[in-house]
Write a protein that binds this DNA or RNA. Structure first.
Lengths: 245, 245
DNA sequence: CGAGTCCTTGACCATAATCAAGATATGTGG
DNA sequence: CCACATATCTTGATTATGGTCAAGGACTCG
């Protein structure tokens, strides 16, 4: 295993979208961190119906959370990007009710579930930050629920593209032309949006033709964010800063 | 305003589904609680796009969280029952991204947003409990997302009925015949499930005819939970105990 | 009794699912 | 380098789930 990144040197902290931590917070997190996990693209980090004694934060790479029904139907709940906190459910409940899979190679910072209470005791402000993360994820799920419940296929796709692109932008993953490497396949998109693969493809085709965006060979380009937001009926105001753990 | 309930005397604490608190936790919460809010059935507690300086817990009554799109389409995100913690987003972000409305008269315990950090500092175990609540709500949203994305109308309705009934059962709101007062109208169900009112009605009719359940005049009766779970493709294991705040 | 809310049902329509097949890549072993 | 296999994307034809429109019934309440 390669040498691990010290939290004080975490490259994510340099990004504008993460708040500055105090010395004591940083020192605590660095001690709290018990290692790093390298995971290959296309593998399962956490499995539905199993339990786990770890909590992770994403240092690098992207993935997604999903649930499967016993007859095989599956639903992607949300996509996971650097800075995200994952596996909190595993730390609080007996059993995971979702799986986590990777889309690219990922690097995860590993924390022990057993240390969580100590985090709350020793660094209340970090405890608060954990709630912040849980609450932000809930907001994303809320909006996703609106998509699945009330948006048409075209609107859903436009919304999801805006969200993914915005997050990538915040993280500095987008180049000057609005292009970002996102190896999300059409079947992933279909599973996230509650659509069939075929209909996802046709709708995506429709959006691409109007030249507001393109998504080819794992590269997403957004050319006209405003129009996409309009199509999606999404008010699209930008996010404030995130407290990284 | 009527006299408020002291946390030490909270009727919810007597229920099996809530964990016992220590003396010091109870004393803290009681001081933390700044009052009680009585809200009539059919009113709005928190409004989308506004901000709020309060967090609430539900002492009595039921309601729901919803989001509206600017063209009027609306989506109910989840139903709210006694013991739930609400308005956490308002405490952490500038603006609410959802509204909260009541279905029955409700009594809410009021806490000041500004006191939240103190809660984390003085009572880390309660801070942990806040995360627990956020995480449990996330789980419910996850499963709801599976419903909207991958379940048919019939499955969705069966699932929702099981969930609502289970929660009511835990809270001791169900009488011996499996009957509970739930003044959720068909249009609420439709808005929660991403269905039209008409189709909700027809599907509900279909389920009622098979005698596993009935929902009339605001009273829901579940006669055969197992069959409903099967219809819903829901594994339906029961919940463990909840830490009330 | 009229007005409002909620529930119910039938007829028709549309969005998206399913089925089927082919096109484009990419990679592998011979 | 080719033959073959696999994954991904694309498109057309057909079907079905659920939406929309319209209207009437049941009940409550002032």
């Amino acid at each position: 295993m390669s040498t691990t990144t010290r939290c004080q040197d975490c490259p994510l902290r340099r990004l504008d979208c993460f708040r500055q931590f105090s010395e004591s917070e940083l020192a605590f997190v660095d001690r709290f961190k018990s290692g790093e996990l390298q995971v290959e693209a296309g593998s399962t980090v956490l499995e539905q119906s199993t339990s786990s004694t770890h909590v992770f934060t994403v240092l690098k790479g992207i993935g997604f959370r999903k649930k499967v029904l016993d007859d095989g139907r599956q639903q992607i709940l949300n996509f996971i990007m650097p800075g995200d906190l994952i596996g909190l459910q595993a730390a609080l409940f007996e059993e995971m009710e979702h799986s986590i899979e990777t889309l690219t190679d990922m690097t995860l910072c590993v924390f022990q579930r057993a240390d969580m209470l100590r985090l709350f005791q020793d660094q209340p402000s970090l405890g608060f930050t954990v709630v912040w993360h849980a609450s932000r994820e809930e907001r994303m799920l809320d909006e996703h629920l609106v998509s699945l419940g009330r948006r048409t296929a075209r609107e859903r796709i436009a919304y999801t593209i805006v969200i993914l692109h915005d997050r990538a932008l915040q993280l500095g993953l987008v180049n000057g032309d609005g292009r970002v490497h996102l190896p999300i396949r059409q079947h992933h998109l279909a599973d996230a949006l509650g659509l069939s693969l075929v209909h996802t493809n046709k709708t995506l085709r429709g959006l691409s033709s109007s030249d507001v965006m393109s998504w080819k060979n794992g590269y997403l380009t957004v050319r006209d964010r405003g129009t996409l937001c309009q199509i999606a009926r999404y008010d699209g105001s930008e996010e404030a800063e995130n407290p990284l753990i």
